[in-house]
């Protein structure tokens, strides 16, 4: 068992390092995500032109919708990049556990989206004149849980839509309906923290439940999806 889990961690680490190196050299995912999110922020800012009080009310929704849309850009490249040179087929025939591959991809996406969030947050604060009235530190665990919720399902559905016609559009069609509870929790918790009127605790509990349920389900089902040629 320990040997097995050691192998899992090893494959995860190697794959993750490979993905990060690829991304570091090409910067495809992060550049396109960043530019896309920037566009969303600017367009929303023009369309609403909010004052500081209104900003607190709507920023939670704006920031997470921007992140979700931008994440789709990175998620679409997750597996598509492995199709070139039949890398994915090599994974299929290799004895490496499927879940370690899934974890590596999900962690990689988590890192990309987290970097995006870190770069976007100052912009958001600047454009929307944000100053949270609630406990701002709670935004950090919230962002971690929310990002994981988006990427764990996103990585899974990206693998699923790999063999579909018009793959790029298939991913959001599958991902968005299932992500609704997570998005609702994220947006409401963020608004609660920014306005400081309500407690975000309940939403964080819900988000944690969502993460646990879907992480387990994705890990249980991923091997089937990987081998579904």
């Amino acid at each position: 068992m320990s040997k097995n889990s050691g192998a899992t961690a090893g494959v995860t680490g190697v794959t993750l390092a490979k993905d990060l190196r690829l991304e570091w050299r090409s910067k495809d995912a992060i550049n396109s995500m960043l530019f896309f999110a920037l566009l969303v922020v600017v367009v929303f800012s023009f369309s609403f032109d909010p004052n500081a009080e209104q900003s607190r009310q709507i920023a939670g929704g704006l920031v997470w919708v921007a992140v979700l849309f931008a994440a789709v850009v990175a998620l679409n490249q997750t597996w598509a990049r492995e199709l070139r040179n039949q890398v994915l087929d090599a994974y299929r025939v290799s004895p490496a556990p499927a879940n370690s591959l899934f974890l590596a991809k999900a962690l990689g996406n988590f890192i990309f989206v987290a970097v995006l969030e870190m770069l976007m947050t100052p912009l958001f604060i600047m454009f929307y004149k944000l100053r949270p009235l609630g406990p701002a530190w709670q935004l950090i665990p919230l962002a971690v849980l929310g990002t994981w919720a988006i990427v764990v399902n996103g990585t899974f559905f990206a693998a699923m839509s790999l063999r579909a016609r018009s793959r790029e559009i298939m991913l959001p069609l599958l991902l968005f309906p299932v992500t609704i509870p997570a998005l609702l929790a994220l947006v409401n918790a963020t608004t609660a923290i920014l306005t400081g009127e309500l407690s975000a605790r309940f939403w964080i509990v819900l988000l944690t439940t969502y993460d646990v349920v879907f992480t387990i389900a994705c890990l249980l089902l991923f091997e089937l999806v990987l081998h579904a040629e």
């Binding site: 699923m160 839509s161 063999r163 579909a164 016609r165 018009s166 298939m170 069609l173 599958l174 089937l224 999806v225 081998h227 579904a228 040629e229």
Partner: peptide, 14 residues
Amino acid sequence: MLRRFSTSGQTPVL
């Protein structure tokens, strides 16, 4: 939609 658009031979699994 997934069933309709999937070209995989193992659409039922997905």
